[in-house]
Simulated assay, not measured.
Amino acid sequence: MANWSDPRPTAAPFGVAAGTRSDAYDAGLRSYMLSVYNYMISAVLLTGIVSLSVAYTGMWRMLVSPTGGMSGLGMLFAFSPLAIVFAMSFGANRMSSTTLQALFWAYAALLGVSLSTIFIAYTASSVAGAFFATAAGFAGLSLYGYTTQRSLGAMGTFLIVGLVGLIVASLLNLWLQSGPLGLVISIVGVLIFAGLTAYDTQRIKSMYSHVAGTPAEGHTKIMSALSLYLDFINMFLFVLRLFGSSRN
């Protein structure tokens, strides 16, 4: 009987010619990665559709208080996605695949509501340009992460530390409101999420050998798609901040 839990892509099952196991592994890996990308791309499209709908129907006004800043409803939509991410990250093992998928789609939709204001702050051509530039960059970086034989583990550790620093600097700049610091944050943000795109792709690819054919495979696909989705969205936002043209 085939030992499909064997993570070695070149290991052949008992009584099967060498190379057959590798072919099955490669086919399974391609199907696995395609499923991850399908989830991720569908979530990006859902976010975009919701953002456009909220922006161009005028519903975005409910997110802004009369005195400026976020309204109570705006804060609810801003922090709900964060709560969902924490729930998915720390509770995934206790959830069914159906629940995890529902939270994933809910996250993408709620984030779309929050991001609707970018269509008010930036011109439509700027948003479109930033989106397609990010899509092209993401595709190239993810392809590199998938195909490279070089381990990106050390780079991943460095990027995660840099991400923590980026979050701290961003929170600090909410108080300082420094233009030069904001520019530096945007540049560093693009570089960090560009690197994370390649790193996460390689990490997701390597995880397949551990979850293939197990109950954890469905959960891993969704969480992997979430990682790539967050890389894409954050890279897009930093690119937009760098090169976007304001409506004001």
Rank of each mutant, 00 (worst) to 15 (best):
A109P: 02
L100V: 02
L171Y: 10
M95E: 10
Y122S: 10
Y144T: 03
S114L: 11
G129Y: 12
F90G: 02
A136L: 08
L172E: 10
G137R: 10
M88K: 01
V127A: 09
Y146F: 15
G153T: 08
Q149F: 04
S96A: 01
M95F: 00
L171D: 07
Y146K: 03
Y107M: 11
F131E: 06
Y122G: 09
T147N: 12
I120E: 13
S96M: 03
A130S: 12
N93G: 06
Y107G: 09
S89K: 14
L166Q: 07
N173I: 08
L166W: 05
L172R: 07
L152S: 02
V113M: 07
S96Q: 02
G91N: 02
L111K: 13
F132W: 15
S170W: 00
A109C: 06
G91M: 04
S170I: 03
A124E: 08
L141C: 02
G156I: 03
A108G: 01
G162A: 05
L115V: 10
R150H: 14
L174N: 15
T148Q: 04
F90R: 05
S114Y: 11
A169Y: 02
G145C: 07
A109R: 01
S116F: 07
F138C: 14
F86I: 05
I167S: 10
T134L: 08
F131D: 07
S126T: 01
G140Y: 04
F104P: 00
L143Y: 05
V168I: 15
Y146A: 13
S96I: 05
A130Q: 13
G112E: 11
A109N: 06
M155F: 03
Q149G: 08
Q101Y: 01
A121Q: 15
S151C: 09
G162Y: 02
Q149C: 00
T157G: 14
V85P: 04
G153I: 00
A108M: 06
T99R: 00
L103Y: 09
V164G: 13
S170P: 01
L159Y: 04
F131N: 03
L172S: 13
L115A: 10
A108V: 03
S125H: 11
G91F: 02
T123N: 11
L166E: 11
L159H: 03
